[in-house]
Design a protein around this nucleic acid. Structure first.
Lengths: 171, 171
DNA sequence: ACCACTGTACCGGCTGGACGGTACAGCATC
DNA sequence: GATGCTGTACCGTCCAGCCGGTACAGTGGT
C-alpha cells in the first residue's frame, strides 16, 4: 500500500530531526511508523533505499513549492522567505531532515539538497530581474534554514528582515 | 602531549567532511592522525569526549575570528562574509565539520553551532547600527555556509553579492 | 653511578552489543 | 490457494570501549 510507504517516510521525517541519522535505526523508523521491521523492509529493501525514497519525495515537494511561489501575487519572494522561516511547515521539516542526512554513507544527500537549492534559485531569478539581488534573496533564505537547523530562529524578529528584502525587490 | 591531541582533532576535522560522522570511526580518526586507537583513547576517553573536544576548539577559534573582524578596517562586514565564502579556510572547514556533527547522538553540536552564530551575530551588530540590516548580513553569511556545506558555492559569483552588501552597510 | 619505582604516552587484540539484512512463518483478502 | 503484507527469530558485521602490555623519562634513595 502506498499509504504505508508514505507513513514510513513521514516517520523518518519526524525521527531525523529528533535523533539524527545515527538514531534513525530501521527498527526505530518502523516503530514510529507503527510497522514491523519486516514490513519496512518489504517496502524499502534497504536503508539506502529508504533514505533515497525520502530524498526523492523532497525533490517532488520542491517542485510543488516552486509552483506555489510562481502562483503567488508578490512574485514569490515573500512566499519563499516565509517558508524558510516557518519551522513547523511540513516542507521545511522535510528539508531540515535532508540536511541531517548529509554526511551519511548510505546516500548523497548533499547532491539532492544542492539540486533543491538550485531549483529554488531559478525560481527566485525568475521574479527578481537583478541577478545579484536574486542571489542575495536566496542566500537569506538559506541562512534562515541554517538557523532553523540549529534551533536559533526567532520568527517574529526575522519578519522585519523579510519585509526589508521584499521592499528591496520591488522598486 | 598537546601536539598529539591537536593532531587528532585536525584528523577529525579533515575526516568529517569526507566521510561524515558515521565514517569517522575511532580507528579511522586514529589512522588519519597516525596514532593507534589506544593512543587516541588515551587522550580522549570516549568518542563523546573526542567530539566535545572538537566543538570546544571551534568555539575558541570563533573568538579569534571575531577578534579579527573587530580589528579589520571595514568594521568587519566584508571580513565576515569573505570567511563564509572561502571553503578552504581552516575555520570554515572546522565550522562545516561541526555542522556535519549535528544529529549525532554523542554530542549536541547544534547548541554549539547556535552559540557560534550568536557570537558572530553580536559582532556584526557591533559594526552595523541598523539591527535589521545586521541580521540580514548575518543571514547571508549563514546562507553562504549552507551552500558551502552542500558544495554549491561559486565564490567568484558571490563576490558581487558581498560587494553589494558591503555597500549597503556604509551609506 | 645504579637501581627501584612511578607516571606518561602509546599500542593492538578482544569482546559485547547494536544494527542491517535475511528467512520464514502467519494472516488477511480475494 | 494465491497474493500482499506483516511479525519475529536469527546471522554476520562493525565498532566503541576495555585491558594487558611496552617504552621511556623522570625521581629519589643509596
Amino acid at each position: 500500500m502506498a499509504e504505508t510507504r508514505d507513513r514510513i517516510l513521514d516517520a523518518l521525517g519526524t525521527l531525523l530531526p529528533e535523533v539524527g541519522p545515527a538514531g534513525a535505526t530501521l527498527e526505530a523508523v518502523a516503530a514510529r511508523a507503527e510497522v514491523s521491521k519486516g514490513g519496512l523492509l518489504y517496502h524499502f529493501g534497504s536503508k539506502e533505499a529508504l533514505f533515497a525514497g525520502f530524498l526523492a519525495r523532497l525533490e517532488e515537494a520542491t517542485a510543488g513549492e516552486v509552483e506555489r511561489m510562481r502562483a503567488s501575487a508578490d512574485h514569490g519572494v515573500e512566499t519563499y522567505l516565509r517558508i524558510s522561516s516557518v519551522t513547523d511547515d511540513h516542507f521545511t521539516r522535510t528539508f531540515l531532515s535532508a540536511l541531517a542526512l548529509i554526511g551519511t554513507a548510505e546516500v548523497d544527500a548533499a547532491a539532492t539538497v544542492a539540486r533543491v537549492l538550485a531549483t529554488y534559485r531559478s525560481a527566485v531569478e525568475e521574479c527578481v530581474p537583478d541577478p545579484v539581488l536574486a542571489r542575495l534573496v536566496q542566500l537569506v533564505g538559506d541562512g534562515l534554514y541554517l538557523n532553523a537547523m540549529v534551533g536559533s530562529l526567532d520568527p517574529a524578529e526575522d519578519d522585519h528582515v523579510i519585509a526589508r528584502i521584499v521592499a528591496m525587490t520591488r522598486p
